[in-house]
């Protein structure tokens, strides 16, 4: 169930912790399997539990606690838009409206072609470049409607 690449990734992280603390690698392990599949199915979480010697419930708890994990299918690109105070002061509402209109979806939804999921997120610590959004680890700052369009056009 866990791909050889994901296993290698998990082993890399396990080296950072004392040998008897395998559970410490659960966050990077879930990231590794999520990267393979796009989201975390119950079977995948069970595989992680078995691999790290954890009870499945302890893995579900972690997967549902942290926001970077998806326990249901999402689009190929997750667009995470900050709407917190500093972005709000710099008119993130305009960016949000534009994104919802262009994609034809609301918060938490995925476009019918499976390309984009739109997420409202909390402060990305990019307040100096507000308004800001994040896609696959890349933080895009000082957003304008034009800039947003260019970023989305470049994504498959």
């Amino acid at each position: 169930m866990i791909s050889p690449e994901a296993k290698a990734e998990i082993e890399h992280w396990l080296k950072k912790f004392p040998p008897e603390q395998r559970q410490s690698a659960v966050i990077p392990a879930l990231k590794a399997v999520q990267k393979d599949n796009g989201w975390l199915s119950r079977e995948m979480m069970d595989s992680v539990a078995a691999y790290l010697g954890m009870s499945p419930i302890a893995v579900y708890e972690v997967a549902s606690f942290y926001t970077l994990f998806d326990t249901s299918p999402v689009g190929r690109h997750k667009i995470a838009v900050c709407t917190n105070i500093s972005c709000m002061l710099r008119n993130c509402d305009d960016i949000v409206q534009h994104l919802k209109k262009r994609l034809g979806i609301d918060w938490g939804q995925t476009t019918p072609d499976g390309r984009f999921t739109l997420q409202e997120v909390e402060c990305l610590a990019a307040c100096g470049g507000a308004p800001a959004m994040q896609i696959a680890g890349d933080c895009h700052e000082n957003l304008t409607l034009k800039k947003v369009d260019a970023i989305l056009d470049a994504l498959e």
Partner: peptide, 12 residues
């Protein structure tokens, strides 16, 4: 783990 809204110093 910088996350307090308005804070972006540790990231930099």
């Amino acid at each position: 783990d910088e996350g307090e809204p308005g804070t972006f110093k540790d990231r930099d």
